[in-house]
């Protein structure tokens, strides 16, 4: 298992006017091994840029991004990404999609089948293995995408608003399932979202970003409360009614609210 470290990371993009657009300014952040960190922030706070740099899909202009102590230079299977748009291969069946990363790693066929069967069961998707993604609901597609990322046993799981494209009910079910999955098979998780509820419910720590340019605003510790009140063994709706949950959610919400302008 590996940790993620952002050290004084600045990311700017060139623009036509000549003055570069600064997406992220001087962010330092560490996600410990097996820790679940959620990042929330208004649009324009560079949440996705942060995730893309950890994935190796973008590179910092200044500072460094390290995973397991090694500088990130390119995408690699130690850092699997779950995308908002699912990004399943439409021409591959559920089984082939989940096995994709395993084939890249050269895992023997028999072992691939075992792993695929394991995740199909864990995500309660038995019987769908020969379907194509377009034959599945949005929630099911995102389960396949999560299974595809989990299957390669990455040290780090990067999730970019993975439930953002789902309807409210499916979203709740998926949040519960993700808690179940990440407690059963913990990974170092960087979870990007704009939903405060989701961040507080899922994460050990919630990182709040400010915008224009994107920078670190505050980090809120959730884990002590969650463990003290044993959130993980309760249903999601019960947890969200707890006074402690409401308190934390309000705390995060206040940090976000004063940044939101009427035109958002």
């Amino acid at each position: 298992m590996k940790d993620i470290r952002f050290d004084n990371v600045t990311k700017s993009f060139p623009t036509r006017s000549g003055t570069p657009f600064v997406a992220i300014r001087d962010v330092s952040l560490a996600v410990a091994e097996r820790e679940f960190v959620a990042v929330v922030g208004p649009s324009g706070s560079g949440k996705t840029t942060l995730m893309r740099m950890a994935a190796g899909l973008d590179h910092p202009s200044e500072g460094s991004v390290r995973v397991g102590g090694r500088e990130v230079t390119a995408p690699g299977p130690d850092r699997a990404v779950v995308f908002q748009q699912f990004a399943l291969f439409p021409w591959k069946t559920v089984r082939e999609n989940i096995a994709f990363g395993l084939r890249c790693k050269g895992v023997p066929r028999a072992r691939q089948d075992e792993i695929v069967a394991h995740y199909l069961k864990l995500m309660s998707m038995e019987g769908t293995e020969d379907r194509f993604p377009h034959q599945l609901s949005g929630g099911m597609q995102q389960r396949v995408a999560i299974a595809r990322s989990y299957a390669i046993e990455p040290d780090v799981l990067l999730m970019d608003e993975p439930f953002g494209a789902l309807d409210a009910q499916t979203r709740t079910v998926m949040q519960e399932e993700l808690v179940r999955l990440t407690r059963k098979e913990p990974r170092t998780v960087l979870f990007i979202t704009h939903a405060v509820d989701e961040a507080v419910y899922l994460a050990d720590r919630v990182v709040v970003l400010a915008r224009d340019p994107g920078r670190l605003r505050e980090i809120i510790d959730i884990r002590p409360t969650r463990e003290a009140e044993d959130w993980d063994s309760r249903p999601i709706d019960q947890v969200m009614d707890l006074a402690s949950f409401t308190h934390l959610r309000t705390q995060v919400w206040r940090l976000l609210r004063d940044q939101i302008r009427p035109d958002d």
Partner: peptide, 8 residues
């Protein structure tokens, strides 16, 4: 991007 991050 999805193919690359899964090791293709």
């Amino acid at each position: 991007a999805a193919a690359r991050v899964h090791g293709a």
